[in-house]
């Protein structure tokens, strides 16, 4: 008779990194979450060995400065607990700026519940001053979508090479400003996996170059905030 794999219990949360906390590094953020989980008194599972660490995993690390609304994170627990209880306890202990979007629980033999996201959605808010109008941006975006390719330079340890990341851009659109003082926003859905990865900054830089070509004058798209809306 084969041995049954043990049943594991997880809290799967989606958290946000808003306001000034977007300037936390992934490591700083992980430490802050770690401590919040401890303060909340969740029965978190620890690794074995000389340096036991709380079993908390993230779907993807966010760069310093990038905000987020719903980043998946899994917390392994030693025993099952109702999701709403976890949500309440944790939300009370997360530092200001780190928000809790939702919490669910799973139990079962699987070890990983949040890996395998293939695409990320971003919203880039431009600085109102100096930003081109929504129409011009839309025209640039359309050109990029029509273009067959988007060549970018990628550095690896040994070499720099030019690759086409256009296949990694799934959606791209321009959204009206939130208010009169705010700048227009650009939404994009980009591939996340290593071979097709597209960075939001690469799309923005391409747009800058195209808008310069269109208008004949120097255009700078000053990014105010990059927000990762979610992973899929």
């Amino acid at each position: 008779m084969s041995e049954q794999p043990p049943i594991r219990h997880f809290a799967i949360i989606r958290f946000g990194k808003t306001g000034r906390t977007r300037f936390l590094s992934h490591l700083d953020l992980a430490r802050a979450v770690d401590r919040a989980v401890r303060r909340a008194g969740l029965p978190v599972k620890y690794s074995e060995g000389f340096n036991p660490s709380a079993q908390i995993g993230y779907a993807s690390a966010l760069p310093v400065g990038t905000a987020a609304e719903a980043e998946p994170c899994q917390i392994e627990l030693t025993r099952p607990m109702p999701a709403d209880e976890i949500h309440r306890a944790l939300a009370a202990e997360l530092p200001e700026g780190i928000t809790l979007a939702d919490t669910r629980v799973v139990s079962g033999p699987r070890r990983k519940h949040i890996s395998g996201s293939e695409i990320a959605e971003y919203e880039i808010e431009l600085d109102a001053s100096g930003a081109p109008c929504v129409e011009a941006l839309r025209q640039g975006v359309q050109e990029l979508l029509d273009a067959g390719e988007l060549m970018v330079l990628r550095e690896t340890k040994s070499q720099t090479r030019e690759i086409d990341v256009r296949p990694g851009i799934q959606e791209l659109s321009v959204v009206e400003p939130r208010s009169e003082e705010a700048g227009p926003r650009i939404r994009m859905t980009l591939a996340l996996q290593q071979d097709k990865l597209v960075k939001p900054s690469e799309v923005i830089e391409w747009l800058e170059r195209r808008l310069f070509g269109l208008t004949g004058r120097d255009v700078r798209l000053d990014v105010r905030v990059v927000t990762r809306l979610g992973l899929r």
């Binding site: 000034r20 906390t21 300037f23 802050a32 310093v64 400065g65 530092p95 200001e96």
Partner: peptide, 19 residues
């Protein structure tokens, strides 16, 4: 100000709002 934070090393040490 927020506009300075992406131009300096380890900006988290200047954001305040710690627990």
């Amino acid at each position: 100000p927020e506009s300075t934070l992406n131009r300096i090393e380890t900006p988290a040490r200047y954001i305040g709002g710690e627990r």
